[in-house]
Nucleic acid binder design. Structure first.
Lengths: 190, 190, 190, 190
DNA sequence: GATGAATGAGTGTTCATTCAT
DNA sequence: CATGAATGAACACTCATTCAT
C-alpha cells in the first residue's frame, strides 16, 4: 500500500493558514484550500474527518507552538516580574515571526468553530503561567483578583498590539515592547 | 415620491443583530435575515447596496450607540481618573444591557467585512477619550506612550472581560468592575 | 414581484419522470433533473423543500392520477366481478398509455424514499376497491381471507405483467388482458 | 501462486448483504462494504471487476440458493398441484428464514444494476418449474396461457406477501400460507 | 416601494475507482 | 495477494444577487 505522504498533510495545513491570511477565514472553503495545497478536496478528508476537524486541528497545533515558544527559557527561580517580562517578550517575538499563524488563531477564535474546541485542553498548555499568577498572589506581589481579570491585562493586550488588523499605526520595536510590558505589570502588580 | 419605510429599515437591522446572535455571523445569510425581518430579500437591496453594506451599516450604527453610551455624563471638569472610571463603568453597563449588540460587533470585527469599514470614522466617535489621554499625558498623569498602547489597557480589557464567549467563569458585579478598573488605571497612570 | 411560473413547476415534474425513465431512479440527481427541465438546480428548491419532497410529491401525484383512472366508470350497481374486470382493464390501459408514470412509481416504490411517504394516504385513494372486496366477502362471492392476500392476486399481478422490465416476452392485447383477469378472478372468487 | 482467499470473498458478500439490509441499497457504497467486511476497498477490486460485478454476483448467488431451496424435495411423480404447493411452502419458508437475502434481491431487482444481469441465466435455475407448468397445460390441468401470466399468479404473489416493506399488516402462519396457495392454484388451474 | 421567483456559482462531503507499495 | 492513500467527478443543497411584476 501507499504510505501516508507526510508532506501532503503538512502542505494542507500550510495551505489552510496561508489561505486564511490571504482571503480570510470565512471565505476559505475546502475546495480552495485543496487547490492551494495542490491536492484533491477528497484528499483532505483522508487526513481530517471534516472541515471542522481540519480547522480545529490547525488551531490546536498553532496554540501548542505558541505555548512552547512563550514558555521557552521559563526559569521559575527568577523573580516573578522577570519571568513575566520574559514571557511577554517571547510572545511578541513569536507573533512578529509568525504573523500568519497568529492571524489564523485570531480568525479562528472568533469563528463559529471556536465553540467546538476544548478550551481546557488549550489552557493546559499555559498552565505554568496560571500557576505563576497564583504564586504571585500568594507572595503578595500580584493583586488578588480573579485570574481572568489578571489575564485580561497580562496576556490579551499583547494580542491587540500585535494584531495589525486592529492596530495599524504602531511599529513594534524592542523599546515599545519593553514599555508596553511596564503597563501590563503595573496593572497586575500589587 | 414615496419615502422609504423607516420601520422596515429598523426591523432589518434588528433582525440582523438577532440572527447573528442566534446562529452566528457566518450562517446569517441575506435570505434568513429577510425572513427574520418579515421582509423580502429583495427589499433589503432597496435599503442597502449589498450584504456588506447592510452589515457595515449595522456595525457603525452600534458603534455610534456605544460611543454615546460610553460618553454619557462625560464631565471634563472632573479629575481624569474619575472620568475614565466613569467611562469604564458606562462601558460595562452598556455591554451588560446590550449583549446582543456587543456580540454582533465582536463577530463583525473578526469577519472579512471588518476590513471594509473606515476605522477613522469609528475612532471619531471616541475622540473625546483620545483627547483625554492626550491631556493626561501632558499633565504627567498618564504614561507618555503611544495611544494604541494606552488603549490596549484602558479600553480592550473591558471587551475581553465582558465577552462571555472568551471568558465564561467570571460573573461581573459592581465590585469586579471597580477592581478591574483599578488594574486598567494602574497600567496607564504615571 | 414575479409570479410562480406554473409551466416551470410542471417541466420539473416532467423532467423528473422522463429522467428516471431514461437513466433510472438511482442516477437521477437534482442537477441532472434541473438540466433536463432547463432550469437552475436552485429553482427546484423554490418549488420543493428538498429532493425527497420533489420525488414523493411526484409519486403521490402519479398515484392520484392512477386511482382516478382506475376508478373511472366505477359503477357499484354492477356485479362485483364486472366491476373488478372494469378496474383491471382500466389499470392495464392506464399503464399502457402512461408507461413513463408507471415506471417511475415502480422505481420509487423500491427506493429508500418509499419509506418516507404516508402509505395510508395513498391507500385512501383506492378505498372503494377495498370496500368492494369487503362487500364481496360478505356476499360470499369472494374468499374470506385477509385483504392483503386478496390484493396480492387482484392488484399486483397487473403490475408484474405491465412492467416490461420484469416481463419482456409478452405483448399485452385485449385478449391477454381479458384472460389474465380470468386468473385473477379465479384466485379470489369463492 | 497464492490462491484467492475464499473466506475473504465470502465475508465481502456477507457484508454486502448485511449492509444493504442495514442502510439500504442506495447508500451502500464500496467503501462502507469494505469496512463492514474488514477489508480494504482495493481488495474488493481483486475479487470483482467493479461495483456492478460485486452486486450482480451477490444477486445471482442468492437466486441460486433460492432456486435450490424452492426445488428441495421436488418429486415429479406427485400430482402437479401437490408439487406446486410444496414449492410454494418452500418459498415461504426460505424467505422467512433468510429475510436478509430476500431483502437484498428485492432491492437489487429495482436498481439500475438489474438491467445488467442475464435474466435467462436466472430463469434456468427455475426451469423445472416452467417445465411443470408446461406439463400441466398439456395435461389440461393448468390454463393454457402464456407462462409469464401463470408466473404472475403462481410465483410473484409470494414475494408481495413476504415483502414486509409492502405488506406490513399480515403475519404469515402455516394457515395463511396454505390459504394463500389456494388462491394461487385457483388462479392457474383449469 | 416592495416582492417572491429565478439563478450561476459556490458550499462541504462522498463516490467508485486506481495507484504505489 | 492485499492494502490505505489518492483522486476528479459528482452529490444535495445554499448563496448573494437580480429580475419582472
Amino acid at each position: 500500500m501507499r504510505i501516508k505522504d507526510k508532506s501532503k498533510e503538512e502542505s494542507v495545513i500550510a495551505a489552510t493558514i496561508k489561505l486564511v491570511n490571504k482571503i480570510g477565514f470565512a471565505s476559505s472553503s475546502v475546495a480552495k484550500i485543496a487547490k492551494e495545497a495542490n491536492v484533491s478536496p477528497a484528499t483532505i478528508y483522508i487526513y481530517y474527518k471534516n472541515k471542522e476537524d481540519l480547522l480545529t486541528s490547525t488551531y490546536i497545533d498553532i496554540k501548542k507552538q505558541l505555548s512552547n515558544y512563550m514558555l521557552t527559557g521559563f526559569d521559575s527561580s527568577k523573580p516573578i516580574r522577570d519571568i513575566f517580562e520574559h514571557v511577554w517578550q517571547n510572545t511578541f517575538r513569536f507573533i512578529a515571526n509568525n504573523k500568519e499563524l497568529f492571524y489564523f488563531t485570531e480568525q479562528f477564535a472568533n469563528s463559529p468553530y471556536s465553540d467546538k474546541i476544548d478550551k481546557a485542553e488549550i489552557d493546559m498548555y499555559f498552565e505554568p503561567l496560571f500557576n505563576l499568577l497564583q504564586k504571585g498572589i500568594e507572595q503578595k506581589i500580584i493583586k488578588n483578583v480573579h485570574y481572568e481579570i489578571l489575564g485580561a491585562f497580562i496576556f490579551y493586550p499583547v494580542l491587540i498590539l500585535a494584531n495589525n488588523r486592529l492596530c495599524k499605526t504602531i511599529k513594534l520595536t524592542d523599546k515599545t515592547i519593553k514599555s508596553s510590558f511596564t503597563l501590563a505589570w503595573d496593572a497586575i502588580k500589587l
